[in-house]
Design a protein around this nucleic acid. Structure first.
Lengths: 234, 234
DNA sequence: GTTGACGGGTGTACGCCGTACACCTACCTT
DNA sequence: AAGGTAGGTGTACGGCGTACACCCGTCAAC
């Protein structure tokens, strides 16, 4: 009489860590990380909240697991190219991942601060990145500096201070334009200039991708110049 | 007969927005932002939780207010120096502020994402920074790029991926050194090298301040080279 | 002097959260 | 048949943000 011989329609697939993390990531993708709760994840999986705790230790460990899932989405390093191309491609791949999961930077940062060690996937990512620099002839000291220089960009995100604000409901107590211009003349000037050229770009009128690559290349060029100046001793 | 003529010991100073924000910042400084709750702030002020809501609209608005307090701690721009020195000093001042309030980057980032506009103090900071570049002869386009390049560093923090881990309770399931070295050879090599030189520096063996300035100068040098290449037309 | 508005602290209550703990059930091993 | 084990369940607790009704001291207008 076990399993009722298929009489009942099997109510759901068996839970496992992967499915829990997947549901959590999906929920965060569509509602932001603040809207993520153990109870909501359980509901999405058709399961009682406490069931999740058989697969993740607690919410923090769940967040760690989610990060690992995301870092796993980053492309592996290219083979048979110079370090600069490899780093560039890798960082851009990381950026693509983060654009798919805009809540990720915050989680990464907060988890980094709370934990003794980054998660294994992050460790592997960093290790591989260091390896790319080393293989490119960077001295160990220079790699060290380079990792710091890349800083947050290493994981693909910069602050995006001027994030796309179109499509947000207009702020009820926003300043009228003329007062805006009077109080923040430089911001206004910049915003006007950005809005003027390249009207083709939808949204903010600022090509985020271009800006990102501009910044990335500036950094990489700077590193390349340093590499040339100090030679390549290990 | 108003105010009882000092017969009762005045139980507490009257509440106001400033005192609420001050208590909130103090609490976050000593317990991290996760430990911050309206109830704890109220308790610290000897007041019932709902009293706070007469001075801040809600917790998010409180966080915004806290950011404004912090940004107000950043030194005003120096006068009568070149743009590079001015930017450098300002960014380093912002960094000092953030070292005093390590929870701030996370709050700034999360609030930036949730809000239509940054808080006024942040706006003023950004505006002033743009003004410094403009006064230094940067074209508006180049300022635009520069702001993006500075990215998170503009507000003084880089990711600090290798944050000081000394003084944290040892991770119970940390890898033994040899396995660490086998799995993450590059990280290990770098860590060893960093630990070797400059044993004078306490903590992680990595001079964060030096790394920060190294990265900052690399960026600024790159911008300076661009400035020279394109000339200074507005 | 009385009145009434009002700024600001209070008390209660609701619905959400993470999760400890005891349980129950279906399967696998022996 | 017996018992262990992995995994889903149910209940319960303490903490959170905050809506809402209240109450009291001050002060203006009459």
């Amino acid at each position: 009489m076990a399993t009722q011989a298929g009489a009942v329609p099997r109510p759901r697939a068996p839970l496992n860590r992967e499915r829990v993390l997947g549901a959590a990531v999906a929920l965060a993708d569509e509602g932001g990380v603040d809207a993520l709760s153990m109870r909501k994840i359980a509901q999405a999986l058709g399961v009682v909240p406490m069931a999740l705790y058989k697969h993740v230790a607690n919410k923090n460990e769940l967040l760690d697991g989610m990060i690992d899932v995301l870092v796993g989405e980053i492309d592996p390093p290219a083979r048979d190219t110079d370090w600069k191309t490899t780093v560039r491609q890798r960082v851009l791949s990381a950026r693509r991942m983060l654009l798919r999961h805009p809540w990720a930077p915050g989680v990464i940062e907060s988890r980094m601060k709370a934990r003794a060690a980054p998660t294994p996937a992050v460790m592997e990512y960093l290790d591989s990145m260091i390896g790319i620099f080393r293989a490119g002839g960077f001295s160990i000291d220079l790699v060290h500096h380079a990792m710091h220089v890349m800083g947050s960009r290493l994981l693909g995100f910069s602050q995006e201070l001027f994030e796309d604000s179109s499509g947000r409901e207009p702020d009820p107590d926003a300043l009228p334009p003329e007062e805006m211009a009077a109080r923040y003349p430089h911001i206004t000037e910049l915003a006007m200039a950005v809005a003027h050229d390249q009207e083709s770009v939808v949204g903010s009128g600022c090509d985020d991708q271009f800006e990102f690559e501009f910044a990335l290349d500036l950094t990489l060029d700077g590193l390349e110049r340093l590499l040339g100046a100090t030679g390549s001793k290990g």
